[in-house]
Amino acid sequence: VRRVLRENGLGLFFLGIFLATLLGQALVGHADFNHRQRAHHDEPVSLGRYVLSSDFGVDVLENWQSEYLQFTLYVLATVWLLQRGSPESKELDRAGRESDADQRVGRHATKSSPRWARAAGWRRAVLSNSLVLVMATIWLGSWAVQSVTGRAAYNAEQFDHQEAGVGWLGYLGTADFWNRTLQNWQSEFLAVGSMAVLSIYLRQRGSPESKPVGAPHDATGVEG
């Protein structure tokens, strides 16, 4: 058990704090929702009902989609774009998809390579892009569900004020949808750009996200 925890600490730690903070969001979101219900002279709802509501769903999913967009873009952009001095960047002469030898695919695959790295055709293509494919799928899926739950929550608000609801396509044109979307995107892009740029001159001893403390500021693509 100790070995399992040690070897999976990163994945388990973040899964744990994800579940804990999601629970926290449900509790305070529920309290906030009922506060607004009372202000509108409406009946309060139970915690279970709130967790299974579009109000809670859109608040969760709008954040999910932006995180997966961020990482999808980061994984893709770092294939071609470089940042001199950043440990997040590849070395300056390695921009692009690199050679089969560099990537150990086809006849350059080793005994311990995944089977699809040796395969030709679609299997190698799928494995070669699987991280971006899955991250992008999660981004688009959660963004779509943000729109579906966002529309339901938006319409509930509209009906509450005796105003007309909108269809799904109509909702995609509302300021509500784009305000929820862009307020998340901007923070992700700033954070990701900061990681790439701040790590040029700043260090965290022991972190693979940082260069070694003694590495020169202009060393590019050197991970701790």
């Binding site: 899964l15 339901a152 319409n155």
Partner: peptide, 30 residues
């Protein structure tokens, strides 16, 4: 590697379950 695979699957299940569940919630207009 069994525990590693389990953590990998746990992440995928959490993500797919979350997206799937709220797709239904939104469709039903809950």
């Amino acid at each position: 590697m069994r525990a590693v695979r389990l953590v990998f699957v746990a992440y995928l299940v959490a993500i797919v379950a979350g997206i799937g569940a709220y797709f239904v919630v939104g469709l039903l207009g809950l």
